[in-house]
């Protein structure tokens, strides 16, 4: 059974635009404009898009915070807004830019309070907390009030807080935003750990494509409120023609060489390949004066940037 199912999900906001001193115009913004999405149990889904594309709005409709303007969404079998209270026990949510913890209380107190709020059996709570403590190194700051924690420490606390009631789906909205490199790594490896167990579904929005490359098999790209890509990262590359490149450096310039050469600059040749580079490399092996062969992976940032650009141009 699908954990998340969305059909024709829409959200419109009315904004008042000031035209002149007296006149104000109402304008309708389609933040989410017909999103269809099915997520199966245990999937790790990356949900990306440029600023204002509707990522967070989709997430908020799925978690019961925002009421959809139209369309249907079911999460864990519930309709989020009307059945929000029941749904909250089945999902965990982390907002990178806001806190779910009690600002003035030590982390430990927040965790304990969450146990009561979600009515988690003490043993379950203790075992989940123990796991998070060891995976996220919480012990050193467990007794410090949340407002005094660094962003990285706080985010580790937020992740724990979202998982203590054993949610089936974990929604993460920009979990690595503003974090330093070390903290980002900690968050990613923790999420990998959560994901590989296979019992928690992960939905993650992010700006940082490295998050996606590390964590997600499936990538959904949204732009102007619409899904413009839904598939694996490889499928994205295939679709937008980004290929691996083989760069060959030679001692002497070669006059000509057969193959898919994209660049020939004197002593440097660049080939593009689909799939395995083995055949090309084998052929090149016998080349006289061969200095070096390098294989470059396609850059996801480039692909996505190109993707945004094309959809912007297509947009009405």
């Amino acid at each position: 059974m699908s954990v998340i199912e969305a059909r024709g999900l829409r959200k419109e906001f009315t904004v008042r635009v000031k035209r002149s001193r007296l006149r104000r115009e109402k304008r309708i913004v389609h933040a989410v404009d017909g999103v269809d999405l099915t997520v199966e149990r245990g999937e790790m889904l990356g949900y990306i898009g440029p600023n204002g594309a509707g990522k967070s709005t989709t997430l908020k409709m799925m978690t019961g915070v925002l009421m959809p303007s139209a369309g249907e969404v079911r999460v864990c079998g519930y309709t989020p807004v009307p059945q929000r209270t029941k749904l909250t026990r089945r999902i965990g949510v982390v907002f990178g830019q806001r806190s779910q913890l009690w600002w003035d209380l030590p982390l430990r107190d927040s965790f304990d309070l969450l146990r009561h709020i979600f009515r988690v059996p003490a043993a379950d709570h203790a075992s989940r907390l123990r796991r998070c403590r060891s995976l996220l190194d919480l012990d050193e700051f467990l007794d410090i009030p949340v407002r005094q924690l660094s962003l990285g420490q706080r985010m580790r606390g937020e992740l724990t807080a979202a998982l203590l009631h054993g949610p089936e789906v974990l929604f993460l909205d920009e979990p690595t935003i503003g974090l330093d490199v070390v903290s980002k790594q900690a968050v990613r490896s923790f999420l990998t750990e959560v994901g590989v167990r296979g019992d928690t579904t992960l939905v993650l929005t992010t700006h940082d494509l490295a998050d996606i490359e590390r964590l997600c098999q499936r990538l959904v790209v949204i732009d102007h409120g619409r899904v413009v890509h839904d598939g694996t990262i490889d499928a994205l590359h295939a679709r937008y023609g980004s290929r691996r490149r083989v760069v060959v450096d030679l001692d002497e310039p070669v006059a000509s060489y057969s193959g898919a050469i994209v660049e020939a600059d004197g002593r440097r040749l660049v080939f593009e390949v689909d799939g395995s580079a083995a055949a090309v490399v084998a052929r090149l092996g016998g080349l006289p004066g061969l200095r070096d062969i390098a294989i470059l992976e396609p850059d996801i940032e480039d692909v996505v940037a190109r993707l945004y650009k094309t959809t912007t141009e297509d947009a009405p």
Binding site: T63, R89, F118
Partner: peptide, 18 residues
């Protein structure tokens, strides 16, 4: 105003009760 109220909605207890 800041949107932090979203966190209050993500708990199984009615916000007013909380």
């Amino acid at each position: 105003r800041t949107g932090d109220v979203a966190s209050d909605l993500l708990r199984p207890v009615h916000p007013i009760t909380m």
